[in-house]
């Protein structure tokens, strides 16, 4: 499972669309399953399932018809399609909604149906662009479960998300990108280790503390009225600071992908 992280407008969706062979490349080359994306889009697309960022279910049809109509685009024979559609509705727990028009589904149900739709062709690779956006915790956990079970079945999963815990939990490898460029690549643990160390000490900002940190040549960052000190050994640093710099308000915690993300892409809001 491979994750793409990046601020709004970083180019994640654009990258996903290039992998899906729907957006053209302006330079470079792209191979999927060893096939060239520009010259063999039909073959590639027949083995890919897509959960797009924006819901695009067919509102002229019911839940079940959505799956059947979609199966025709892949030339799946009717009886096989019916079998798969029933299976998939069960897989995403939408059996009861079979004959509902898609407009009247809740946001979470729509996302689940899109996941089912993406699986109708038994894809070798599943592309998910922010699959759990706007979902409640139950629905998110359900989607995560499904993704893990698909991974076990050998499906390659490519995922973008703004929920960093989601990527941290699910992905084996990830990249952080910004302005269309890859900034880092690695497993979540590697990336955290490499860019912020395994732990973080948070302290209130004051000049005395900064002097103290400067003396020790510590790796720190000032964020508003907080100071983040990056370290592999938060406990020790915390103790050291309390003694040497006579500080009281401190907290030590393990570093997360969120810290890496903010450190790499800055804290300024994107348009």
């Amino acid at each position: 499972m491979f994750g793409f992280l990046g601020p709004n407008g970083a180019g994640k969706t654009t990258t996903m669309r290039m992998i899906q062979c729907v957006s053209p490349l302006t330079s470079g080359n792209l191979e999927i399953f060893g096939l060239d994306a520009m010259s063999r889009p039909r073959e590639i697309k027949s083995h890919i399932g897509v959960v797009p960022q924006e819901n695009n279910l067919d509102m002229d049809f019911t839940v079940y018809e959505n799956l059947l109509v979609f199966s025709r685009y892949f030339d799946i024979p009717r009886d096989e399609a019916e079998r798969r559609a029933n299976e998939l509705l069960e897989f995403v727990h939408l059996e009861d909604k079979k004959d509902t028009m898609t407009e009247s589904l809740s946001g979470g149900m729509k996302r689940r149906l899109i996941l089912a739709r993406a699986l109708i062709n038994r894809p070798k690779m599943l592309i998910l662009d922010e699959p759990t956006v706007g979902l409640d915790p139950q629905a998110r956990h359900m989607i995560w479960d499904k993704l893990r079970s698909l991974k076990k079945q050998g499906v390659t999963i490519v995922l973008t998300s703004h929920y960093l815990d989601e990527i941290e939990k699910l992905c084996d490898r990830l990249v952080v990108m910004d302005y269309g460029k890859i900034l880092v690549e690695g497993s979540p643990a590697q990336v955290i280790e490499k860019y912020v160390g395994s732990g973080i000490v948070e302290a209130e900002h004051n000049p005395e503390l900064i002097d103290c940190l400067e003396k020790k040549e510590a790796n720190y960052e000032v964020i508003g009225d907080l100071v983040h000190i990056y370290t592999d050994n938060p406990k020790q640093i915390a103790e050291y600071l309390t003694m040497e710099c006579s500080l009281s308000k401190l907290s030590a915690r393990p570093a997360t992908l969120e810290d890496v993300f903010l450190k790499l892409t800055g804290r300024r809001l994107r348009e």
């Binding site: 897509v50 279910l57 067919d58 979609f70």
Partner: peptide, 13 residues
């Protein structure tokens, strides 16, 4: 309805 977007994610161009 984004119908075209959905369809072009399949082998249909």
């Amino acid at each position: 309805q984004k119908t075209f977007d959905a369809i072009i994610a399949t082998p249909v161009t």
